[in-house]
Amino acid sequence: MNACSESGGMRARAAAAALVLALAVVPAFADNDTTKQEQPFTLDGQNPCLVTDHFHVEGTTSTETRVKDQGNAGSEFRTRSRSVGEGFGLPSGARYTYSDETLNVFRFGPKRPTKMENRRDERLIAHDNRVPSFFHTHREKTVSGADGSPMVCHFREECRCSRSDPQRVECEPSTPNNCQAQG
């Protein structure tokens, strides 16, 4: 099982939202101290703002990671990830798109954390006036790959109608998955 594979999606506590994630992984390759990954993803679920509409979106997340080792002083991790996806809704026929870019720069001392996860609200846009757009949470988790190099795993979960809606549907806080450090 690849370190970035994901066996299942996240269960929402309410039935209003369900987002199932399936990931496949293209093997990483190294370019000097830069690692690049491409991960195709599929998002399937129910639009939490229009529960009669089911969406299916496919896309790719490209991740570029550079580690500057500074000896005893520690290391600096730079990660840039870009995601694009496109799909449709049923029965609305609406076109859904997803596009996002993130940049994270962390500096660690001699002791690195074994886990560093970054969460971010991202928008799935419905290109149809009759169909509302909504948010989901993109979780970007950095682990050590089999060769010791950092590997960034991407998970998407938690559908909700808006960022600020206090009555939003929340998912359970954490789902065990196979994105674990190896070695």
């Binding site: 962390f106 500096r107 001392g109 002791k111 954390p113 886990k115 560093m116 970054n118 969460r119």
Partner: peptide, 14 residues
């Protein structure tokens, strides 16, 4: 930023 991590020191650079 919204981060989850082992309780070790680190720096975020913006």
């Amino acid at each position: 930023k919204d981060l989850e991590f082992d309780p070790v020191g680190f720096s975020i650079l913006q």
